[in-house]
Design a protein around this nucleic acid. Sequence first.
DNA 1: CTATATAAGTTGTGCGGAACAACAAACACC
DNA 2: GGTGTTTGTTGTTCCGCACAACTTATATAG
Lengths: 414, 414
Amino acid sequence: MSSIPPPERHAPPAPRGPGAGARQSSLREANLRLVLSTVCAAETPLSRAGVAATTHMTRSTASRLVDELVAGGLLTELARPAGSGPGRPATPLGVARGTVAALGLQVNAGFLAAQVVDLSGATLAARVVAGDFVGSSPSQVLARLADLAREVSAQAAPAPRFVGARVALPGLVTSDPGTTLLRAPNLGWSDLDVAAGLGPPLTPAGETIPVRLGNEADLAALTVATTAPGRPGPVADFVYLSGEIGIGGAIVLDGAVMSGRHGWAGEIGHVCVDPDGPACRCGSTGCLEQYAGRRALLRAAGMPHATPAELVEAVRAGDATARAALGAATRALGVALAGVVNVLDVPTIVLGGHLGQLADVLEDDLRDLLATRILSAGWVPPAIASATDPTAGARGAALRELASVLAEPARWLA
Amino acid sequence: MSSIPPPERHAPPAPRGPGAGARQSSLREANLRLVLSTVCAAETPLSRAGVAATTHMTRSTASRLVDELVAGGLLTELARPAGSGPGRPATPLGVARGTVAALGLQVNAGFLAAQVVDLSGATLAARVVAGDFVGSSPSQVLARLADLAREVSAQAAPAPRFVGARVALPGLVTSDPGTTLLRAPNLGWSDLDVAAGLGPPLTPAGETIPVRLGNEADLAALTVATTAPGRPGPVADFVYLSGEIGIGGAIVLDGAVMSGRHGWAGEIGHVCVDPDGPACRCGSTGCLEQYAGRRALLRAAGMPHATPAELVEAVRAGDATARAALGAATRALGVALAGVVNVLDVPTIVLGGHLGQLADVLEDDLRDLLATRILSAGWVPPAIASATDPTAGARGAALRELASVLAEPARWLA
DNA sequence: CTATATAAGTTGTGCGGAACAACAAACACC
DNA sequence: GGTGTTTGTTGTTCCGCACAACTTATATAG
């Protein structure tokens, strides 16, 4: 006669997230995360004992956590090299290859790209399709991108578990729902739900892959900040400049992309370099983009239909117009970047896109200009590097998704 | 015959800090921190049950942690108001007053300041001494500051426990040891060990108080970001501009001051506003400081010995020269700040120092200028606020020291 | 004035997870 | 083959939080 229904035994309300009290399980999660990132970040493969040493945990604890990660398919035991030294030989650990992966997509003015990258940072599949997408139809382009996505996700064999997909876009993106493109001037797109535009959800293994968006420069910068998921790159603090038709940018602080309150940080292309300069389509005047953007630069050099490589040739050949244009661009870069460095104290510049291709011919002048305009240049001289992979946005998009595995390993144990 | 010495039973090597494995005690520390900051941040006093509710901990856990903090002298039980509602009345909790405090010092071109601030944010003692310290002798000035420090720390009665002292300085400060001033152009000081210059260590209660340094703009910005230790201010993300002889600045992201790789971030005064502008003492040209710095602005207004308040009067009276100078300063601020906002996506500006005093007469024009130059102004219009306490640096210095109590409550339990 | 409802705070038990210590395993070197 | 050295595993202990039951203190209904 139990007329009273049993009290609904639903799971605890899971009050996770920051600002919530730490429970016992938080310890395990934190240490699981620590072990995984330690193995990811290691230059040379670590053993269980090595993990224990670098994390200052006991060998027993480290061993237990490693075992969980190995059983969950995130780590693997590598073959151990013969002849190492005295004592019991260690079993080196590595990030599992091909078990967990993410899909990185990119829409650019000149191409579409799609990549599958796994947790070890290996590219399992990749495709690039050239085209001219300036002023293109969003629906057609996104349908084509979805085809590309299906293609590469099928190519990755054996099929990995997909943690997510992200689209790198040359424009302003909302960060709250993360599926709306506000404005991409080079494509002529605005107010667009990109996730919806991709059509039916991607379900390579039955599971639906969530699709998110990101700014192309932010994501390209991520490939410089981290060479593989959890593995920091050569520099941890830098300003990334992505030269396209216009100029995008990103700020990386301590290995993390600073995307700002609404996700719109890094618009260095619209820093004012000369208030009396030419009008910019953004409504301001004298924006950096008007001097060093690809279209403006090539036009000023008198070779509007040339490539950046051809501009380099012309400059080296002594073409006066080309030299003047390059000089103006370099001076503009000096003013804008010096401002950024003075404000942020991040004296490393990474030039990407066409600016990366021009790095050889402008690097020295730019360094000199920065040295005179940066207040702290006397103590820490500015450094300039370049990155030239055009599809860095797609790879960065995948890396960004994989970062969620490092953030919450327990969620992704098989 | 124990020739073998007993194994030195020293305490565990305490491998604290980030990147180290979390142990059981980490849980307690994290929750202790959470409880303390929750009580600090609460608008209206919380009870033990209230703490449990906001932190999602159980009442028993919250209660135990609160008891520890009360016993340790960091929290207190307040008198409970009569007549609240049904149920057992709650005992409201508050931050203990006068038990734990920090010493905030400030050296400015026009005054010295010293304050004692306790964990509740109350000022227990304060002194300001006017003077002209441009081109002054560091040793004399620091000796006087040390006297002031001794004075205010004796005034605070009953004697609190001092967690630290910090000196706010208008210049570049090293962050590694944190006791060396690299360069303070307005004072004419450079390469100076300020902690040593203060003379014999401050020991109000027998214990030596560690002395650290900080940039004045960074610390003044902290008083806007947090109204009291652990209590966030009205805005969490903003750019702070400190108008002095020159112009200092600070970037606050998510309530924390972004001080940069070496602690030199925020030098907005040397952002280039016009590459063809006047030469600046920093070696660059057209720096913001040359238009909107106090000295430059008053000189351009034709009233080099006036105060900012007198400039406001002249502008309101229709003085053409003053108006032109203010217009030029406003335009320069527009260019520089728009650049910062475009790069950082932090569309709130707080004007301090003389710029705070001028806020009334330049705010509207500045907002309009920013609206045309900020890329995202259409979605989030820029906001402008002002702060006018000249000794904000000293208070910020104390707040900064008190933050270490919130970071590690266990270290400061009585 | 008593009974009931409601909410705050306390007490005791159980459990998850890391520390610690002891042990087994696998190699190099003498 | 013995010894030393380092890795990895196993069992015990201890710490800190969750959970549930209980006590305390008020307001409100009858």
